[in-house]
Simulated assay, not measured.
Amino acid sequence: MTPEDPRNQPGAPCPCALGPSYEQCCGRFHRGDETAPTAEQLMRSRYAAFVRYDVAYLLRTWHPTTRPAKLFPDDGPRYTGLTVLEQTGGALFDSEGTVQFEAHYTDGVRDGVLRENSRFVREDGQWLYVGPVA
């Protein structure tokens, strides 16, 4: 996302579609002011990080056993929308959970949808993305 991209302007809506603005919603997690309190909020904040190309946040919230050494989200598609379909566990007092979602995107030629049922675990009070449910 370039500085002139409207999604990067102050007061722009959060890409995760939950909060009134990025700064008040996922921005607080990306800045490190707070950690996501549920697996769904972590998944939404990770989606917003892919939209905004926040590689540091993506790596920081990826479980160390499955985290890639490098990540280049700006080489991939441009994400345009998120739909959460279902979740199991992942609440304030759970230690694991799953979130099934659809991430809509365009690759410059055609539109598509990435569907995933993601697994999350909470360690030391912080939710971490593990990977797709097999």
Results as ranks from 00 to 15, higher is better:
1 M>N: 11
2 T>Y: 04
2 T>K: 08
3 P>C: 08
6 P>Y: 12
7 R>C: 04
8 N>R: 11
8 N>E: 12
11 G>V: 08
14 C>H: 11
14 C>W: 09
15 P>H: 14
15 P>A: 15
16 C>E: 15
17 A>M: 11
21 S>Y: 02
21 S>G: 10
22 Y>C: 05
24 Q>G: 14
30 H>N: 08
32 G>N: 08
32 G>Y: 07
32 G>Q: 06
32 G>S: 13
34 E>H: 13
34 E>I: 15
34 E>K: 13
36 A>V: 06
36 A>W: 01
36 A>E: 08
37 P>E: 09
41 Q>H: 11
42 L>K: 00
43 M>F: 07
43 M>R: 01
44 R>H: 13
47 Y>L: 11
47 Y>I: 02
49 A>M: 03
49 A>T: 05
49 A>S: 12
51 V>I: 08
52 R>G: 01
53 Y>H: 10
53 Y>V: 06
56 A>H: 12
58 L>F: 04
60 R>Y: 11
60 R>A: 07
61 T>S: 13
62 W>E: 08
68 P>K: 07
69 A>I: 06
71 L>E: 14
71 L>Q: 12
72 F>H: 15
73 P>C: 04
75 D>W: 04
76 G>Y: 04
76 G>M: 02
77 P>Q: 08
79 Y>S: 06
79 Y>G: 00
79 Y>C: 02
81 G>L: 03
82 L>Q: 04
82 L>E: 06
83 T>A: 05
83 T>W: 04
84 V>T: 05
84 V>E: 02
84 V>A: 01
85 L>N: 07
85 L>V: 07
86 E>T: 07
87 Q>M: 09
87 Q>W: 03
88 T>F: 03
88 T>P: 02
88 T>H: 08
90 G>W: 01
91 A>M: 10
92 L>V: 14
92 L>M: 05
92 L>Y: 09
93 F>E: 13
94 D>F: 10
95 S>E: 12
95 S>Q: 12
97 G>F: 00
99 V>M: 06
101 F>T: 02
102 E>I: 02
103 A>S: 14
103 A>E: 03
103 A>C: 01
104 H>I: 00
104 H>C: 01
104 H>K: 01
106 T>V: 02
106 T>C: 03
107 D>F: 03
108 G>W: 01
111 D>I: 07
114 L>V: 11
115 R>K: 14
115 R>Q: 13
116 E>K: 05
116 E>W: 09
119 R>Q: 12
122 R>S: 00
123 E>S: 06
128 L>Q: 00
129 Y>I: 00
129 Y>T: 01
131 G>C: 07
131 G>E: 00
133 V>T: 10
